[in-house]
């Protein structure tokens, strides 16, 4: 474990907590893409299957349980509890166009052709594009509540910090995983446009407005 990965995991934890609190406190999931949250639930389910087979550390196990539980809780809040506030009209990204290519790519490019490894690879590829429905929804509505933009900033930072972690691990432990690194770079790049808007607008107290 290193400081980059720890702060990355904490940023990830913070993002999930911000989202859960926003939906729970405002009793509304307006502006939130349910489709992205479904993709995240799929990502954690396919990635953390080893929860029952391998024990890495208490931290690792606890975080996996939290990510799994919170992702399903978020999907439940959006599609069941606060269904009336779910914005169907703006959450229209076709997630099959993200899932299928991730499945195909995982079957073609992986470290080992075993079920657990393929599922892990699929989850890495899917996570890199899982935020697209949410970014698409923000671009369609043309704006995002400031709490939603804080959520996105924390979520985008988490994988950006992981990139620093991978550089650190390569330098210190000569350990690297190209699949995770390439997907992590793609994932972080997808947020760049948003990061620019967040830093130039939201941090100045303005609302996050996308150029119409």
């Amino acid at each position: 474990m290193n400081i980059f990965r720890l702060t990355g995991d904490l940023a990830h934890l913070l993002a999930i907590i911000i989202l859960l609190l926003k939906i729970w406190k405002t009793r509304s999931c307006a502006g939130i893409s349910g489709k992205s949250q479904i993709l995240f639930a799929i990502v954690y389910t396919t990635r953390y299957l080893d929860l029952v087979t391998t024990y890495v550390s208490a931290y690792n196990t606890l975080m996996k349980i939290f990510f799994l539980g919170s992702s399903f809780a978020t999907v439940y809040l959006i599609y069941v509890k606060f269904k009336a506030t779910y914005d169907h009209n703006h959450d229209t990204f076709r997630i099959e166009f993200l899932i299928l290519p991730a499945v195909i790519l995982a079957l073609l490019i992986n470290h080992a052709f075993t079920p657990l490894e393929i599922l892990w690879t699929f989850s890495i590829y899917l996570e890199s594009v899982a935020i697209l429905p949410q970014l698409f929804m923000v671009s369609k509505t043309g704006e995002a509540e400031s709490i939603t933009s804080h959520y996105l900033f924390a979520l985008g930072s988490y994988r950006g910090l992981y990139i620093l972690n991978w550089i650190y691990r390569y330098a210190m432990e000569s350990h690297y995983d190209l699949i995770a690194i390439v997907a992590g770079i793609v994932q972080t790049v997808l947020y760049c446009d948003f990061f620019y808007l967040y830093i130039t607008k939201v941090l100045k107290g303005k609302k996050l407005q996308l150029p119409a």
Partner: peptide, 10 residues
């Protein structure tokens, strides 16, 4: 082929 070492990252 890289061996599928233990995945210790989240």
């Amino acid at each position: 082929k890289k061996e599928a070492q233990v995945k210790d990252e989240l």
